[in-house]
Each structure stands twice: as C-alpha cells, then as structure tokens.
C-alpha cells in the first residue's frame, strides 16, 4: 500500500444470492428460486489510519460486505481493493494485509488453550517460531489474557474469547483490520475495554473497518460512517456531519400506554413533524416508544400530545433530545435500526 493510496476502495460492489424456497418435509418448492440482493452496488473508500464504520440493521448487508473484502465471498459484480490489492485477483495478498474478526466467539478452538490457538495461527501466517513466541506473549499481555493463556478456551468468558479472536487477527501485524460486530454479546465493561483497544490500534496507525448496529458505538468510535440499509449506502459522512444533516431538528421521544394503532400516521400528518418511528418499549410494561423528528419541538409538542390523547392513549413519559445517529437512520429510512 503506497502513501497516498486508500486502505479500502469499493466501487459498485454487488452480491446476489440465489435462494430456493422450501416447503415442509415432503413438498419441495419447484421453480421458486429467489434472488436476494444482499449488497446492491455500493461505493466507499476508507482512508489510511481511520476508523470507518458500516452502520445498519441486521440483514442490511454489512457482514456480506466484510466477507467480500476479506475474500471469504466472491462478489457478483463490482470491484474492491484492500491495501491496493484486488479481492478477487489478488486474494492471497489481500489476506496478508488484513486481520479479520468475524462475529461471535467461535473463531478460535475451544479445546486448545489461548496460547496454542495463537501458536497455530502464527504457523498459518508463516511467522518464524521465535518471532511468533515473542509476538504471542506481547499480544496476550496487551489483551490481558496472559494470566490465563494456558487454560482451555472453553473456560474463557465471551469477552476473553473475543479478545483472543482479536489477538489472532493482530498476529501478523496487519495494517488493516476488519471487525464484524466486535462488541456483540459482550458485557458493558468488556465492550468498553474493546472499544479502547480499537482506539489504541488507530493511534498506532492501523486502519479499522468495523460493522455495528449499535449507534452509540458507531458514534463514539468512528471517524466516518456509512449507513447501510437493504444493501445500499444511504449516507456517508462523519457522525457529527450526519447529525448536523438533520439541520436544527429535534427529537421528541414519547412513551405511551398500549398499541399505537394508526397513531404514527396521525403524527406524520402534523405540521413540523418530519418522521415518526414506533417500536415496543423494552421495559415490558406494555408501553410503546415513539420517536418524532420535528423541526420545532416547542411548537409541535402540543399537537403531538393532543394527537396521542385523541387516539385514546396516555403519555407515560416524554423528553426532547438532540438527534442521535439512530434519528439520522429514522430520518433516512422511516424506520428504527432495531425494527
């Protein structure tokens, strides 16, 4: 990779899967081949040394994109270059330039110790034995696994397994890291520690491309974010610029009692309301949350409450907040990231 070259360049990347419909035990669906467009002609560039995030809901195409970049999946069309190497024609060179951690904690051998896992992968990366020993010790220390390096991985916590997977990816000191949902399944403390590690890697000059569906994580970590939905990039900018893109808008968050049948449409019809997203509340109290993006909360809050009451609901909680990346997503797609 030369000085001026982008770490990752993606042009018109597309992946289409053929899927056959299945019907029960005995009946086989004939002639019902469906095509699923997982990634639909995306373009983006990741600059050297930046943390770049692909943000989107589950099934948006983030993991498919990562898998094409790390050569585990061949693109249907379009091109992608990693460290200047084409992911199809120069797959081996791409794999030499990359450290990849895919989702979950299953990418390491549970019946080996942490150290044995790293020793095995060091051999696959053809790191000379003495150098590998030093590198493994350094990574175990750095990722706080040294104390339990000689225990079987099956005894590790989820956070430790994820750190071991990161250590595996860092073994060959790659200039570029691909992290697919790196904090999924981790407790808050473990997730915080991992985010700090990612910051440290950036400080060392590494380029990080990560996927996440956690807005706060993307906001905190990423220099730039591509918001991806249904295989397409619908926005790409820094988190601050994306939020500023909402203009002087504000978000009214309401928690109401009961099912909001038709209420969303009634609110959308109000003047000054730009978009509304509805989702069940996570507190299990039979309430629903509404996020209303408005250009003027002072003037629209009265009509909003009136509409809620007119629909026979009671407002349990209300707050006016500054926009987040989730609000950007709602504004762009009309739905919540968690839908």
């Amino acid at each position: 990779m030369n000085e001026r070259q982008d770490a990752v360049e993606v042009v018109g990347l597309r992946k289409v899967f053929e899927r056959r419909a299945r019907r029960g035990l005995l009946r086989r669906a004939q002639g019902e081949e469906k095509t699923l467009i997982a990634v639909d002609g995306i373009d983006f560039r990741v600059k050297r040394g930046e943390i770049f995030g692909l943000l989107g809901p589950n099934g948006a195409g983030k993991t498919t994109t990562i898998k094409m970049l790390c050569t585990l999946l061949s693109p249907t069309s379009g091109t992608a270059r990693v460290a200047g190497h084409d992911v199809v024609r120069e797959a081996a060179k791409v794999r030499c330039s990359l450290g990849t951690v895919l989702t979950g904690e299953r990418s390491v051998y549970w019946k080996l110790t942490g150290r044995e896992n790293l020793r095995y992968y060091a051999a696959l990366y053809r790191i000379p034995r003495r150098k590998a020993r030093e590198r493994i010790a350094e990574l175990l220390e750095r990722l706080e696994l040294a104390g339990r390096a000689d225990e079987l991985v099956e005894k590790y916590s989820s956070g430790m397994k994820q750190r071991l997977a990161l250590a595996r990816a860092l073994l060959p000191s790659p200039p570029i890291l691909l992290l697919d949902e790196p904090t999924v399944g981790l407790d808050p403390q473990a997730a915080r520690n991992l985010r700090q590690t990612i910051f440290d890697l950036k400080a060392e000059g590494k380029t990080v491309l990560l996927t996440t569906h956690y807005m706060a994580e993307a906001d905190e970590l990423c220099d730039r974010i591509a918001i991806i939905d249904q295989g397409r990039i619908i926005a790409l900018d820094s988190p601050a610029a994306l939020k500023e893109g909402l203009g002087a808008k504000e978000v009214v968050r309401l928690e109401i009692q009961g099912e909001p049948n038709g209420l969303g449409d009634a609110l959308r019809a109000l003047a000054l309301v730009e978009s509304v997203a509805v989702r069940p509340s996570a507190n299990g109290a039979g309430t629903c949350e509404l996020q209303v993006i408005t250009s003027n909360s002072r003037r629209s809050i009265g009509p909003i409450i009136e509409s809620v009451r007119a629909a026979g609901h009671e407002v349990v909680h209300l707050q006016v907040v500054q926009p987040t990346l989730e609000d950007v997503f709602i504004r762009l797609t009309g739905k919540s990231l968690r839908d």
């Binding site: 790390c70 990849t100 895919l102 299953r106 696959l124 990366y125």
Partner: peptide
C-alpha cells in the same frame, strides 16, 4: 460447525494444505 473454518480460510495459506 465450530466456526473455525472461516478463520482458517482467512489466513494466507493453501486450503488444500490445511
């Protein structure tokens, strides 16, 4: 099934060698 096949195939080695 273990999930290690993808991690192994991410390494710059001959898969047949594995």
């Amino acid at each position: 099934i273990r999930g290690t096949l993808e991690a192994t195939w991410l390494c710059p080695v001959s898969r047949l060698g594995v």
